[in-house]
Amino acid sequence: MIRRHHFHRPNRGLQVYAVFFMALLYAPIMFIPLFSFSDGLYIRFPIEGWTLRWYDELLQRTAVLRALENSVRVAGSVAVVSTVLGVFAAKALVRYRVPGKGPILGFILLPLVVPPIIFGVALLLMVSWLQIPLSLYTIAAGHIIICLPFAIATLLPRFEGYDAAMEEAAADLGENGWWVFWRVTVPIILPGIVASLLLTFTVSFDEFVMAFFLGGTDLTLPLYVWGQLRIPRAFPVVLALGTLILLFSFVLVFLGLKIGRRGAIKLVDRD
């Protein structure tokens, strides 16, 4: 249904601005894939020719593949841990009369706002104080701080979107807490869980600052990219790698946002 409302008449100026805005938003990013196919060693116009050789070169670098494997391992475990923690925390925050609910939520969401460098150096301090060696594990610990707010922000609306009576009805029909969780809670919030896994995976996969401070000798992909940025001759390969990372991230996030929101809207419509 289209609302044809007095205040909703199309505004030509705003439409033009919207197009301009979207162009500004995406244009800089799009130069990365554009130049990744350029034959020249330098990023400059005019583009002299088209090639796939940077991708070819990329795939022959074992360091890239190792960094990719590290990133997937870190992001995979961070996604699972923060989503599981997020499910419990979101359920508690929505369903129970928890004392100090507001401050607790604020505390959990804090990392969305606080500059990541602060968390990075603070964690680095603790880790070295306790003489824990820097590794993929310390990176993952840092990523959980950053991913937990996203997991909870994705899952909270799912719990708010359905009636607590669903769980009561299941208990009333004879199921204990464990079965209520698996037979009712999980199926209903499943889109939220999937969305949270996809989003937190991407956030961890692409995260740089925490990894920069907390990483040891094992590199993640963003750390590898950072290292290559100091070598101008390496730019074309970085562009090829960046193109693949962006493509992968865009697909995951698009799916995550789509699944997360669509289910929520469906649930709301039902009532």
Partner: peptide, 21 residues
């Protein structure tokens, strides 16, 4: 006795029909 062990069943105000079933 917790709810799931009581010999009573309930029809909820908004029916609480499980949306996924």
């Amino acid at each position: 006795v917790p709810p799931h062990q009581r010999p009573v069943n309930m029809v909820f105000q908004n029916y609480a029909i499980f949306p996924h079933l």
